[in-house]
Design a protein around this nucleic acid. Structure first.
Lengths: 337, 337
DNA sequence: TTGAAAGCGCTAACAA
DNA sequence: TTGTTAGCGCTTTCAA
């Protein structure tokens, strides 16, 4: 039943060799004779020897594992990033320990603890919406563990990051809305403390300014989840002066916005244009389909993972803090004129 | 700079104790004096001692890590299951190593290797669409590692599983379609080698039979991704006898189906009803919103993880292979009469 | 070309 | 109440 595990030692004993010789034979050490190598290899093959990773890691003090903290995995963008991370770490021969903060500060702190306990060699993190302090992230840095933020970066920590050009993406989208004739463009954003939201707001404002359209604070609302859309959008539509476009912080908000705007009797895009952000699956099945800004999450995941691995392995050539920016792309569909 | 790590040994030296005493003090061993405990604790606190998990795991031969293999994480259902798994493993104090087969057999095999190499204490897996052989899964069992399949179970392996009551879910949905007046119900399914698809097909057929409606093979198609919908549905709509309902294998198929059916000039649900499966976000933003079958992915993830942990810890009381079934629920929205 | 020995950080049986 | 010792499985220096 409980078959003894095959170890270097057991192989050594069986073959009348020393463990060190077996170890060397297994890793093709030049000093070992071809004959011995063959002998050891054959035996190992036959008895399905599997090196004990734990022992190797303890011995070498490197465990080829990185931690990933995602705020919400049931989300097109973040799951796409995760897929990108996975692809890259697989290539680099790293395992991923997956943590889910679920947009909750406490769980985020706990996730960091977990990862430090597991002695990962690096951490990829995107902070939760509710995170306001960042000692836990500082602890990672203090422990000399590589840390790369992606998308929702933490401005309080000075470390590598990979972000989307939120400003440019928003600018392009809003400028496009203006070019197609919109003049009263509402912005449905997130908590402005998150840089991604703030940057998009600036892109939005600058696009308006460039086109000599006044920026109206009344047209800027925090509105980033379904329930808020159902509250905020009808309110806006009840005003005397209603917008002729909505620029939304993500595709879900845009999709619900489409619904509400249609239900209120307006035509899309003739009366009101709507633009999302992310380019998730959802954009293809709303009616009309959604114009949006592609965030290239997969690429972001890959680049973040690559950067982290380079840091870990000391092969990152750029000096100082590295800040990568993923280009966004306007994807025009039918929800805009 | 390169601060030496705090270890039990280093604490022992500093405090003039033996490592074993320190070890015991840290874990509140009854034999240690309160004074010593306090001393050790204080020192550990001050210098932020963190036990080396790797060493503990090597020593105790248990690493509190489980592996998860997901076929496609950018997918409402699977990411929801992952979130459920994460919630439960966090409670149980297990880490998750995340693997992504990406619906690819080769990567699935590699994932299993990775997890066995990492010496996880258990594996949760849902197989990829392209998996036809299962020696890799058998290897898990042979290695005496706990294995629980979820959703896309592998029928070739005799082990614990957690599935949705696909048959009942399909039966309910199709029966509902019939009750609401549909008579020609098409089934857009997956590769019939996957049990989930086969079970739903049987539910579909039995619901028709129960209602004395002939089962027509021409109304049953393999059609489970966007591109296929764009090919298959228009073909069906070109026939002399077209369906008055589509029962779809997932919500994405249903959503694209809505689009195509509308574009072909039919009204939903007056002319044609459409029903999906999963109850993902998408169902709320199509127009009309989608009737679907809720799969309760989060619950499935939790139960699968719980079952696996019980197996690992030997606390599963049920004898033999355990097969859990998650109840589905028909969610009626506007795409059906 | 191979082996002996030490040690990674921790635990636990046994001894004192 | 505390210490000694051995060892988990592996790597690596040093010696032979």
């Amino acid at each position: 039943m409980d078959k003894r595990q095959i170890t270097l030692k057991s192989i050594a004993k069986a073959l009348n060799l020393s463990p060190s010789t077996v170890s060397r034979a297994m890793k093709d050490h030049p000093a070992i004779s071809a004959k011995t190598k063959a002998l050891v290899r054959e035996y190992a093959e036959k008895y399905k020897y599997k090196p004990n990773t734990l022992a190797i890691r303890l011995r070498t003090n490197r465990n080829n594992t990185i931690g990933v903290i995602v705020p919400e995995v049931v989300h097109f963008f973040f799951s796409t990033v995760l897929a990108g991370i996975q692809e890259e770490t697989e290539k680099g021969n790293y395992n991923i320990i997956f943590c889910h903060s679920n947009e909750d500060y406490e769980r985020e702190v706990k996730s960091v603890e977990t990862l430090l306990d597991a002695r990962v060699c690096g951490i990829l993190a995107s902070q939760s919406k509710t995170t306001a302090s960042f000692e836990h992230f500082q602890e990672i840095v203090d422990s000399n563990i590589a840390l790369v933020f992606f998308d929702r970066i933490c401005t309080g920590i000075n470390t590598d990051k990979v972000v989307v050009d939120d400003y440019a993406g928003a600018f392009k989208a809003v400028d496009y809305l203006v070019q197609t004739g919109c003049r009263q463009i509402a912005f449905l954003g997130m908590n402005p403390s998150l840089p991604i939201s703030n940057n998009r707001r600036m892109g939005y404002e600058d696009a308006l300014r460039k086109n000599k359209i006044p920026v109206d604070k009344d047209f800027m609302k925090v509105c980033d989840v379904a329930e808020m859309v159902h509250k905020v959008v009808p309110e806006i539509l009840k005003r005397d002066k209603i917008p002729d476009a909505f620029f939304c912080i993500n595709d879900e908000v845009a999709a619900y916005c489409v619904q509400i705007v249609k239900a209120s009797g307006y035509r899309i895009p003739e009366d009101i244009s709507i633009c999302g952000f992310t380019n998730s699956y959802i954009t293809e099945v709303t009616d009309p389909t959604l114009t949006t800004v592609d965030q290239h999450g997969f690429e972001m995941g890959k680049q973040a993972a690559r950067l982290l691995i380079n840091r870990i392995e000391g092969t990152e050539t750029k000096p100082g803090i590295v800040s990568k920016v993923i280009k966004t792309e306007l994807v025009v569909r039918d929800s805009t004129r």
